[in-house]
Design a protein around this nucleic acid. Structure first.
Lengths: 215, 215, 215, 215
DNA sequence: CATGAATGAGCGTTCATTCAT
DNA sequence: AATGAATGAACGCTCATTCAT
């Protein structure tokens, strides 16, 4: 059992690794994927070499963040699955996943091109998918689901809302909720009929439409 | 009226500008935002310097593409507005705008950061907004609109769908329609009740979610 | 005929290209192949980008120098071939090639790993080889050649002497001649019998032996 | 004698030094001078810090290898000196030294820039020189030596052949012998007259000539 | 005006060397 | 004394932008 256990990092190394990950998460969340590793290193207060010591390249760093994200989503899904009805569970998960996604730009802009093919990330993803599928099927069984909606659609609609959040994060970090609810209601309407939309429309930004601005 | 009229470009200058815009549109649509201006210049058959003479920087060039887009959208809106019911008109416009947006990667990924404060673009936008508002209000008057939905929400939901299209354009250029209809139905349900979703879910790409991949 | 003719470089471009080539030749000759292209650019008084505009990468620059070298060697071989006897011709070429090689470190240290597969260089090399083969065969016909020596051995012995020259260039730029003559005499002895070696031995440098020090 | 004796290293320190030297010799011989000190440390089973404790920098480590080499050469020279004639002895030593040199890339390519001013190395070198001088003088006395050839020329011609070996080690590790014999014959011809050259010419590598390729 | 040559900061990455543990 | 984490200058190379021709 001790053979595969990685030796724990030295105290200073662990601290620096955490600094790097924190800085990376923050910068990627704020500015998307075109932050440089020099930026990350500087924000973490370490040298570039230190970043490269922990992560073989930029994608590995991004991939590392992704694994964290999966863990958070899995915890969310487990909490949601514990709710009494499928409807509540699905709405809880959808809105929760959207909120997570809305809070972190890095995981959207382009990040995961080839990135996180780590065994860890893949396994977490598989487990997450199981839980989400169960939740979706419960909602379907209750007749609470838009006909034809599938478990794999969950990540798509989440992503969609994420792109809105990326646009408005700076001025109105919660503006995405108006659209998150619109879509959640479309997938799985609330028990008591559709309420009016919350909040205000996102004003036309600068142009007819726009994905996620960078830098 | 003559006071705002900029002096018309000389014939060859205008032709060059058009060459640049055409080339830029094509390249950005094909290859996303990381084409170099040398690529654009070469594709346009002009020197880089010529591109810079017409557009102060890369962003301005991207912005320049927007004006064209507005014209197309305006034509679409006019056609939609001619339909007999507000419901039909709004659904036509929404799905049409989504389709336009889905067909052009350049205008999504990161494009319009500061973008198109040209007088031309602003005026087109204003006119477009008027037509869309009229369409939305007709739908509202018919009771065909989700309560609280506003004209300014149109560009937001269009953009949302665009981000999905960006993700899947390469493998399944029409995959966005499944979600475009989901959202359109949420905004303005079809007359005969909700049909099942069309198509198949977009498979999870590499990760939990992802905005618009680049390059 | 004009279609394949490359358009002549603009005056400034040609001047800068020449500056780059001159600087590169000088630096490579002095310091071997580990000069950086920043060094070359600085020595040439241009920006790095300019170097990269003319030569796609470092190897291309090295390759360019190689073509020049072949031309010089070819001229030498033609001159040597015009001498009355094969013995004189071969000795002239050997000592001349050694001298050229001794004067330029760049073409030795490691340069031509993969480098000069340009059509130009290959053709020059082929022509050079023909002329050298003719010279070698004339010497063989005269009985002036060490038995078994082949035309392809010429470049090897030249290279050998070059490595000596690299060692002593700084202190005694002509010290290679002692060994160049030793080897030339071994390949093709002078008409009147072996004279004593010229010059003095290269003193043991720092160590038992040493190829070509770098930097 | 005790005054120059440095305090002996502690047993473990001495063992570590030996581990480092062994690993360095092996890696440099295999892969040339661009192995990193991390590679050396890892191969030695110690930390990089330990390497630096024993050798102030990379050059010093390379220099450290030289002392070993001198010991081997000294043993070779002693064996050669025991042969009955000066001619045999000199040829034995020359070809043996060339073979040693040909077998180890590390000691050639660039290695000994500032190298081995250790007392140990200097003393070994001095003793080696004495033995070699004696061998050379015996050959001279027998009339077996090219006129003017000096003991200090031995290391030069050895080095020369080494540079050839570096070029061909990968494909034909014994190709140097053709040239080693050519040079040995030029310095000290065999008793029965010059035989034809052995082997085949080294084919022109990629270019007219080339010292010691790296990596 | 159009051209494309020139620029140089900045990219991701490496590695000799230092120093806290 | 030994370790290996940390450092940061430097590498080859790119490309948005400027400016001489």
């Amino acid at each position: 059992m001790s053979s595969t256990a990685v030796r724990p990092l030295r105290a200073d190394a662990a601290r620096n690794r955490a600094l790097v990950v924190d800085a990376a998460r923050r910068l990627f969340a704020e500015r998307g994927l075109d932050v440089t590793l020099h930026d990350v290193a500087e924000a973490a207060g370490v040298g570039v070499g230190t970043v490269y010591r922990r992560f073989p390249d930029k994608d590995a760093l991004l991939g590392g963040l992704v694994a964290d994200k999966f863990e958070t989503l899995l915890a969310l899904a487990d909490r949601a699955a514990a709710l009494p009805t499928g409807r509540e569970a699905l709405r809880e998960y959808l809105l929760g996943a959207m909120a997570l996604r809305a809070g972190d730009r890095s995981l959207s802009t382009a990040v995961l091109r080839a990135a996180p093919q780590t065994a860890e990330a893949l396994e977490l993803r598989a487990r997450l998918r199981e839980v989400v599928t169960a939740v979706v099927e419960r909602a379907r069984a209750e007749g609470a689901l838009r006909e034809g909606f599938a478990a794999d659609d969950v990540q798509v609609v989440t992503s969609m809302i994420g792109s809105i959040a990326d646009r408005s994060r700076a001025e109105a970090p919660d503006a995405w909720r108006r659209y998150g609810l619109l879509v959640t209601d479309a997938v799985c309407p609330p028990a008591g009929g559709l309420p009016p939309l919350v909040g205000e429309p996102l004003p036309p930004p600068t142009s007819v439409d726009c994905g996620s601005p960078r830098a």
